[in-house]
Each structure stands twice: as C-alpha cells, then as structure tokens.
Design a protein around this nucleic acid. Structure first.
Length: 1120
RNA sequence: GCUGAAGUGGUGGAACUGGUAGACACGCAGGACUUAAAAUCCUGUUCGCCUUAAAGCGAGUGCGGGUUCGAUUCCCGCCUUCAGUACCA
C-alpha cells in the first residue's frame, strides 16, 4: 500500500493513549529531563497553525531525549482562568467553567491530532479546585512570610514576631512598607491584636495597601502594568485610568536584586533577559534631603548622579507630590493649581506624544542646598513622575537634557560643573569624563572619586545616603472579577486573616450573575453564603444527618477495590446532578476516597441553602472528579453490575441528610479573586507530582522535587517576558527560601519560538461606474437606474500581474474599458445601452480585498471556490494574462477578519500530522518570526512518501533486505546520525528536515533497502515524524511501541573518512576549480601537484606564485 | 530617543569555530509517461555578458570603508525592517 497516513496516524495515536506510552515515572534510575511548553489559555477559537510550532519543537526534543536514554517529563495543561470565558458568561449567562471545558476539549482534540508525546496523566488546569488549592496555599505562605535583608531570604512571619518581642523593630532589616512606625519590645507587647496585625501586614510578602491601580471601567477590573498597553487594556483595547484602591499586592520588589542577578546564570535569549533587566530597572544612586527654607519640611530626592550636586539650580516635584500644597506660596497658588489641573487632564497618551514641550510652575518656595547652603527654587512639572523614586528630582541643567530644557524655558541658571562641558548654551552634557569645577569639595576629582566623597559627606551631615532604586513595582494581586482563584482570606475587625490550610481549597461560589453588584462590589459579593464560619472553622462542616426523610438511594464506588457498595448518604457531597447512564439518572458524590452515585427518585429540595450548596459542589468537583470517575465507570461491563446493584438496593429504606446552615455571625471572605498570572506562576512544579502523588498533602512530594528539580528546557513566546516569566521566577525563589523547591531558578534554558504570522491573500477588484447611454431627465430616476443595475453587474477582478499595468499604462486602461464593455454583461443593460466607465482616479481604480487563504493555493485563486465563497461573487469575472488568477499577498497578524487563519486540522486532514510537524519545522529557524504559507508543504509530503517507498517495492509491498550495507549507504546513514544530533542540540530543526531529504534522496539513488541502514534511520527520523516511523518500526519486525525508547544510533566517524578530497583551488582568493587530491598529502606535496596541473597554470598566466595557503581538507589558495 | 534582533536568488531558507555563497524545498521553464488531467520521473533555474555547443568572463550576501592569502561570518560608519520600552532623575 502507498503511504496511508490517515490510518497510520490514527492507529498510533490510539496505541500511545491506550498504552500510556508517555506516562513518566518519578522513580527511575535514568537521568531526568524536563521539557516544558507554555500552557495555553483555552480560547474559543481553538488552535491555529501558529500554536503548535513550539509544541512540535519541544516534542521533537522530548522524543530525542527519550531515545538518548533520559527519563523525560513532558506535560501539558491549561491556563484556564481568564477574562474571555468570563466575558462570554456575562453575555450569555453560561458558567465560565462550562465554556472553559468545552474549549479545553477542543484543544485536547487538536493537540492529540498532532501526535505530541505528552504525559496527560499529569495535566493541570488552573481553574481546577484541586490545583488552585495550592495556588491559594502559596498565597497563604506569602502572607505568612517576610523578607529578611540580613539573611537575604524570605522567612516565616514567626521569626519576625519573635524579633519584635525581643527588641521591637528598629534593628529589623526587612523589606517592608515605607511607613512603618518604630517601636520597642515593650510597645510591641502593649499593642492590641489588631494593632499587631496592622504592623505585620506592612511586612508580609502579600499585603494590602492603598495603591494607585490601572482601573479599566469597561472591564470592571484592575489590570497589571504589563496588561496595559499605551493607556489601553491589552485585552479588548478599553481605556484605562488611574484610581486609588485598597488592593492585595505581592512584594516582588523584595526579590528585585535576586531576580536581576539570576539572569546571569540562566540560559535564556539575550533580548529576553534584557527586557527583564529593563523591567527591573536597577539604578544605583543616592537619596539626598533638601531642607525647605523657613519650614521643617524636607524634600527627599533620588539621583544617580550625586556627583553633580553642585550643579543643582532648582528642584522639581511631580504635580502629585504630597508637599506641593504646603510649599505653594499664596501669590503662586493660582498658577500652580492651574498647572496641576492641566496636568491631570493630560491623558497618558498625550503625555507620551508630547515629550518635547516643556511646562511647569514655580511654587514660590526655596529649598536649601545641603552642601552649599544656597537657595534653590522649587518648581513643579509633569516631566517628573510621582511613581518613580521619591517623585522629586534635583535638577542639574548642565548634565541632564530635560533639566536643561526646563532651565532654558524658565530662564534658570545652567552652571557648568565639569571641565569638559562645552556648548552648554546648545545642550546638556551628561558625560562622566573630565574633572569637576565649581564644585568646592570635589574640584579636580574624577567621577568615581567624586561620588564617593559626596556620599560620605552627605552621610556625615545626615542628609543623604547611597541608595539603589528599582523601577520594578510591587505586583497588584487582586481582580474584581469572578473567574479566578478566590483569595483565601477572611476579615475580622477589618483585619485580613488566612483561612486554615487544611480547609483549602476555598472553592469559587456560585453566583447568579457574573457582574459587580449594584454597590460596585466584585461578583463574589453576590454569593450570600460567601462567609467564613469561625466556630467549625471548616467550610462544609454543617452537613449533618437530620430527621428529614427523603427517597435518596446511594451506592458508592470504592476506587481502591473497584467494588460498589451501599453507603449512608449522610456522608457524601453531591458533585453532579442528573447524569445519565442507560435509563438511570444519577447524582455523583464523593466521600473521602470514594466516588459515588446517588439516585434521585424524587429529590426534595426543601430549602434554598441546600440547593445552593449542591450547585457549589457541582462546580467544585465537576471538572476534576468526573473525568476520573467516568474513566473508571465505563470500564468493562460496569453498567450490568450497576443495574444489579441498583435493584438490590432499591428495596431497602435509606437514611438521608438535611442541611442546617446559619449565616449569622460569620466573617466576610475576600471578594476579589487572584490575577491571571497566579496560577501560571508555579504550574511547572505541579507537573512534578504524579497523579497518585497529587492526593497527598503537599503540592509535590519532596522526593519527586529532589528528582525533577527544575525545567531543563522551556519553550514559549517572548510576550511573557515581563509577566509570567518574572512572576514565576519570583514565586520559585520564594518557595525555595521556604524549602519547598530545590533550585533558585525555575527554567534553566528557555527558547522563544517566533510568532507565526498570517499570510493574507488579496484579490484586486476593478472599480467602475455605470453610465447610461440615454439621458435621464430626472436625476432621481438616473440614480435608481444606476443602483438597480450596478448591483447586478458582475464584479471584475484583476490578476496581480495586471495591477501594475493599470496603474501605469493608460493605453491598457482604455483597452480594458473597451474589453469590459464588450462583455455580454446583462441583456437588460444592453437594451438600455448602459456603458461601463472605469473610475478615473488611479488610486480608486482598484480595491484590494482580503480573500480566504483556504481557497487559494500557491497564490493561485481557485475560481470555483471563490465564486461560491459569497453570493455577490457568483458571477465574478477574472482577468489575467495567463489564464490563472494570481493573488497578491501580505504578511499580517493571523485573524479572522483578514481571512488568513489556517488551522492545523485542515492540514492534518489533507497531508497528515507527520507532514504538519515536518513542515512547521522546515519553515525556518524556530526562534524567527515567519509568515505561514503552505507553498512548500507538498515538498515535505513528497519526502515522506519517498521515505515510505524506501521500505517498499514498486508494488508497494514491504520489502527490506538483510544484505550487508555498502560503504556509501553507511556513509549516508552516519552523516544523518551526526547531523541530526547536532541540529537538535542547537535547536536547528529546519536543517534536520533538509538533511532527512538529502539522506532519503541519496538512499533512493543507491536503491538501498537494507534493514541495517533503514532501521537506524527510522530511529533518527522518529522525533520528527513519530507516526510513520512507528509503523515502519513495526513492519521491520520490532515490538510495537518500543521505538520511543529505542537507543539512538551511535555515530561512527570511520564511515565518513575519505581518502581523497576535491580541493577547491583558488587564485588570489577567487575559486577557480576543484582538484582531487589524496587527503594524507602534506603541503609540499599538494603544492607540487597543484602547480604541475595544466589547468592551474592557465590561471597563473606564467607568473610565479608569491605564496600558497594550504588548509588540509579545506582549501588551496595561490597568491600571485 | 533608548535597548535588542535581523537584512543572502522570484519565495522559505542553508552555509555551525573566517575557507567552494545560494544546500534543501517551493515556484517557474522545458521534457517523459498519459486520449487528457492528476500523480510520478528527468533536465534547467543568482544576475549579466559571451558562445552553435563544450566552456569561459564579470558582478554578487542592505550601503560605504577596513582587517585578511581569503569575509555572509570579524572591526568601524551609515541605511532599512521588526520587537520591546518610553520624560526612570
């Protein structure tokens, strides 16, 4: 049979699933290798061909590592909390969990079709309570930790409390809020519980404080800095404004230095590291205090150029600076207030567009220079940002261009401070070269000397100190949204407390609507039982056996024994209602380690609470337990057994339960949910826990953590550079400090796959108007006539090669017009004598129109499909020079509106998954962005057929010989063994595919069908094209499924040894000819041979060579 | 503006530490097979010049310069494109 990819691929995908081929063991003697993909958000659109690029690359690498004898962890999951599902819920009322699951199923189907070797038993979903239980747990750890600067790591909050008890907080070096009041041990002990908590909150690594947030009114939520692009929300593009709100924050700034230093030890792309460095934005400088004249106030500024302090000629405060009001003198207040309101009005966008104009206002107040004692005027201006440093700067116009512009504008002095500063009337000079002048203390010193001297002096005077500043802000950790992890916090007396770890997860409650309440509270406020019960201290403790009688009948499936047994219904929690098996309807429930089924003959819903709780359980368990349950349930002849059991049980009376739930005197839970990045900041760790280990009381058992340690290879897009990848490193470092994680850095090596852009196809429509031959007396009638016919006329499309002509060649235009008018366009039109007139203005003659790329092949339009695409195209006319319609093309983002989305399913249907995999790799280097086009896919498909043909005779019967391989065949094989090994190690997958083609072409030419060659070749190709190779492996007589773990062939250099080489002979560096010369000859002999050659002499033109360069095995260059 | 990456045929791209530029594939042109089409196979294909042909000559990796026997590769300056970032004191 010819290469039947559909059968082959389906069969092997099934085989891998059934045999759990890629399920990985945590107890292995093999060395570990962890290959991770960035898990996707399951959007409604499904995968397009861009998504699998990284997955295919990582899969090739994983499969290769398996062949190399590694125990490879290669998992996949879903980042399934997020805005789109919630937006959809708001519009349709459908629970986001349902949308999410539908989308996940679609993703899974598409992923399965590609033949990726994931260990699906380790799948994670961030929206799964069993997963977010641990996200919440990490939140609690952060809450209960502080950052000790002395030990340079996070510690449990207890160690802080004991420090406070011993000696107050004045000697504690911690990363904390700026406004912590000082206290001693006694004061601490006298504080009330509430006061103590308030203090501790200022030290916790997750804390609450009023912060300016990016508030997006349209989305009704707070966005992180990296979710705001140019003043608009990244998702949806809605305007974003600044707003003050009480918010949960993460003290990521405590880790700024470690996050920066860590970049030096990890193998990541340089651009990405650079982005993180910029984001962290470390600047080394000093804090300097300026006393305000005739006042007790001080203005603190941050500067990176404390050496220029003698050049200060004014101070500038941000308009929002807290001292502005106090400092403004009465006679200036009008001006200042005007300026402030003006600055407020300026939107983010205006401020960005307008970076050149200079504006500001004088407060009328002066500060005192700490070293010279001179008076320094205090100004306000919006070029100083409230959010960076102290919101105030010391302006040195001679050394800073912005200060210079400002000084110029308001006629302030620009004193020179360095002997190399020139042209200060033209621009500022920030150079650090040269010696200082006009600078008392540091005159004649160099930059580094001066900096040291100044800082020392400032410290002596107590008005300044060296200081490192970071641009990195603490990350806001709350969303006023529904579809996210609930924050495991309740409030008592206005103070946040974490819920008990053993009561996790705190499950997302059911709500009637996914919108904020009328009072503007987040959606969770809609759940009225969203309260913490301090007495039981347990979320669902109120299920109890009650007197109420009902007709519930329950059986349970014991997962360990897989046997059914009756159970007291008082102990179960219903997880899903009305599941049908055969004629029966069930509820599912769980009871510790058992999963059960409850039958409802008539379930009495006596009270509202019960119903609400049932719903809540439904949601909780639906997405975690039910799949497992179903897996068990539909095994063997479960249904028969079930029926028998049901009949047994039904005759016996049963107990039931009732609910008594009291909502009084309970404490409010936190109403906001966690941001999108919470769940993705630790997900790779959860993969380390096997399915059975996940039942345990830690997110990863220590032993497994010790084995897997970190991610060896992480593949994903660079768009997560400052979001996910930074937060993940932060959480990892934190968990390491607490001893839950082994490595400081989570991702040892990272590769950014390039974006696959869309390649749109365009058709060129000719625009024309219609002119009647006969004149209409009435204009209205003419318009009617026109409209009537123009819509009936066929649309005319020009092929690409004609478009240029139309634009430049007037003759051609006229011809075109005549030609069009000669068509029998419409009988009725001809009757009235209408004439088509092309639009006169050249730019209007042709409209570019996007056409669905799926009806275009190699830029040639399929007429028939095009005409059927839309009704108005039904009678379209095509003009071209060669009978084929050539479309134009453009590279842009893949999007539905541009009709350039290609999904992998169509490609797989047409060519198969192996072709898709090879082709995506063949397209170009992994890290490079490139447009998707299918122009070359035929070549890859042809290659696979040719590969298949190597193993078959002309009648397509499997035909492999056991003869001994020839030298040429061995050479071809060992070339590819070496090449692919090198290529994969440096992630150059595209060149491997080329080499496969070369190898198969060579072996085809050699008519090689030797088992010894082909069997090894199958292994080498396997990572790239797993299906076809599995099939051939089996045909070769190997045991099914053993290919994935076969040993990678060992390269033997002997087979590549040649005794002759066709030396390129160049004269003066110009290649002239090749000469076959034995490789064992040395320079002298080679020179002799070369110079004796007649052909060579021709080029020498009788002259004697000046010099001969000889590189053995490479080249001979004769210099004349 | 700053930071980073990249510019090679008609197209995607190859050339890994300086050593035969354009591998592999697409497309195109011509041919074989076929009633025909598809599929398949063969030949050619950087550009220009020259030649009946064989062969030969010249130019050529964004532009200009440099180092070198030899540069797509290293150095200097410039241009263009893409990405990130933006008054960061």
């Amino acid at each position: 049979m010819d290469y039947q990819f559909r059968d082959i691929e389906k069969r092997w995908q099934q085989f891998w699933a059934e045999n759990q081929t890629y399920k990985v063991d945590n107890n292995s003697d093999k060395p570990k290798y962890f290959v991770l993909d960035m898990f996707p958000y399951p959007s409604g659109a499904g995968l397009h061909v861009g998504h699998p690029l990284g997955y295919i690359a990582s899969d090739i690498f994983s499969r290769y590592k398996r062949l190399k004898g590694f125990n490879v962890l290669h998992p996949m999951g879903y980042d399934s909390f997020g805005l789109p599902a919630e937006q959809y819920a708001i519009q349709t009322g459908q629970h986001p969990a349902i949308t999410t699951e539908t989308n996940i199923n679609r993703y899974r189907e598409q992923l399965d079709n590609i033949g990726l070797s994931f260990d699906w038993s380790r799948e994670v979903r961030t929206s799964d309570p069993d997963y977010y239980k641990w996200t919440q747990w990490i939140f609690i750890q952060l809450f209960n930790s502080w950052y000790n600067i002395e030990t340079d790591r996070a510690e449990k909050i207890d160690s802080l409390i004991s420090k406070f008890k011993r000696g107050g907080n004045s000697h504690v070096k911690a990363m904390s809020d700026d406004d912590v009041p000082l206290f001693d041990a006694q004061q601490w002990s006298q504080k009330s519980e509430k006061e103590k908590q308030e203090v501790l909150l200022k030290y916790r690594l997750t804390y609450r404080r009023e912060s300016t947030v990016n508030w997006c009114p349209a989305l009704g939520t707070v966005l992180a800095n990296d979710e705001v692009k140019e003043g608009f929300s990244e998702r949806g593009g809605y305007p974003v404004e600044q707003k003050k709100m009480m918010q949960w924050s993460m003290r990521i700034t405590a880790y700024a230095e470690r996050l920066l230093q860590g970049l030096n030890v990890i193998d990541w792309p340089e651009p990405l590291k650079e982005m993180q460095r910029n984001w962290i934005g470390k600047s080394v400088g000093a804090m300097v205090q300026f006393k305000v004249q005739n006042s007790n106030s001080k203005i603190e500024v941050f500067t990176t150029r404390v050496d220029t302090i003698y050049g200060v000629s004014f101070l500038v405060l941000a308009p929002e600076h807290e001292l502005v009001q106090e400092l403004t003198k009465l006679e200036h207040s009008k001006e200042v207030l005007n300026y402030i309101s003006q600055a407020k009005k300026k939107s983010e966008l205006d401020r960005m567009a307008d970076t050149k104009s200079v504006s500001g206002a004088f407060t009328g107040t002066y500060a005192i220079h700490p070293l010279t004692g001179r008076n320094i005027p205090i100004w306000i201006a919006d070029y100083v940002l409230a959010g960076y440093g102290t919101g105030a700067v010391m302006a040195v116009p001679s050394g800073d261009q912005r200060d210079w512009l400002f000084a110029r504008m308001f006629d302030l002095p620009i004193p020179a401070i360095s002997d190399i500063q020139q042209n200060l009337d033209q621009e500022a000079d920030a150079s650090k070269e040269g010696r200082y002048i006009n600078s008392e203390l540091i005159n004649g010193l160099t930059y580094s000397e001066a900096t040291e001297v100044i800082i020392q002096r400032l410290e002596e005077l107590g008005v300044g100190k060296a200081r490192i500043n970071f641009r990195l802000r603490d990350a806001i950790f709350g969303r006023q949204r529904y579809w996210g992890e609930p924050v495991p916090i309740y409030y008592k007396d206005g103070i946040p407390y974490t819920i008990n770890e053993k009561d996790l997860p705190l499950v997302l409650p059911q709500v009637d609507k996914y919108l904020p309440t009328d009072r503007g509270e987040p959606p969770l406020a809609r759940a009225e039982y969203w309260k913490f019960d301090p007495i039981e201290n347990k979320r669902f403790s109120t299920l109890s056996k009650g007197p109420e009688s009902s007709e519930d009948v329950s059986i349970i499936l014991n997962l360990a024994s897989r046997r059914l047994m009756p159970i007291l219904s008082s102990r179960f929690k219903t997880i899903r209602q009305e599941y049908k098996i055969g004629d029966y309807r069930f509820d599912f429930f769980v009871e510790e380690n058992n999963v059960g089924i409850a039958f409802e003959l008539a379930f009495p819903i006596k009270n509202r609470q019960k119903n609400t709780l049932r719903k809540e359980y439904l949601q909780y368990f639906n997405y975690h337990f039910v799949p497992i349950l179903l897996e068990e349930l539909f095994e063997q002849d479960f249904e028969k057994k079930l029926r028998r059991k049901i009949e047994e049980i039904l005759v016996k009376p049963q107990l039931s339960f009732a609910l008594n739930y009291n909502y009084q005197n309970k404490f409010e839970y936190e109403l906001s949910t966690m941001p999108g990045w919470a769940g993705s900041s630790w997900y790779w760790l959860r993969y380390m826990a096997s399915k059975s280990e996940r039942k345990g009381n830690t997110f990863v058992p220590n032993k497994s953590m010790q084995y897997w340690r970190d991610v060896d290879l992480y593949i994903g897009g660079s768009e997560h550079a400052t979001g996910h990848l930074l937060y993940s490193r932060f959480w990892n470092m934190f968990l390491k400090d607490l001893g839950y994680v082994v490595e400081e850095e989570p991702f040892k090596k990272l590769i950014n796959q390039g974006m696959i852009q869309g390649r749109s196809n365009l058709v060129y429509r000719l625009n024309y108007t219609l002119v009647p031959k006969t004149e209409f007396a009435d204009l209205d009638k003419e318009v009617d006539w026109h409209n009537h016919y123009i819509n009936r006329l066929p649309l005319i499309f020009l092929s690409k090669e004609l478009v240029y002509k139309v634009g430049t060649d007037e003759e051609y235009l006229k011809k075109l017009e005549t030609k069009i008018n000669s068509y029998d366009l419409k009988a009725e039109l001809n009757e009235l004598g209408g004439k088509i007139l092309l639009n006169l203005r050249p730019e209007n003659i042709i409209s570019k129109i996007h056409v669905d790329v799926n009806i275009v092949e190699n830029d040639i339009l399929n007429f028939e499909k095009f005409r059927n695409w839309r009704p108005e195209l039904h009678n379209a006319i095509f003009l071209s020079e060669r009978g084929k319609y050539l479309c134009g093309h453009e590279v842009e983002k893949m999007s539905k509106s541009k009709f350039n989305v290609v999904n992998p399913d169509d490609i797989i249907e047409k060519y198969g998954a192996d072709t898709l995999r090879l082709y995506e790799m063949f397209l170009g280097p992994l890290e490079q962005s490139k447009p998707w086009n299918t122009n070359g896919i035929e070549g890859v498909f042809k290659f696979l057929r040719k590969f298949w043909k190597l193993f078959h005779n002309d009648e397509f019967t499997f035909n492999v010989s056991d003869e001994k391989a020839t030298k040429a065949e061995l050479k071809a094989l060992h070339k590819i063994i070496k090449k692919v090994e090198e290529d994969i190690e440096r992630f150059s997958f595209n060149t491997s595919v080329s080499s496969f083609m070369i190898c198969v072409n060579e072996l085809t030419d050699l008519k090689c069908n030797k088992r010894s060659i082909l069997q090894e070749l199958v292994i080498v190709v396997h990572p790239y094209a797993p299906h076809i190779t599995e099939e051939l492996w089996t045909l070769l007589g190997n045991e099914q499924g053993t290919l994935s773990f076969a040993p990678y062939p060992v390269f033997n250099p002997e087979y590549l040894v040649e005794n002759e080489f066709a030396y390129p002979i160049s004269v003066n560096g110009k290649m002239r000819m090749n000469l076959n010369i034995a490789l064992n000859l040395e320079q002298a002999e080679v020179e002799k041979l070369v110079l004796e050659n007649d052909h060579v002499r021709q080029y020498l033109d009788g002259k004697n060579p000046k010099k001969i360069v000889f590189v053995k095995g490479k080249i001979v260059n004769i210099v004349v």
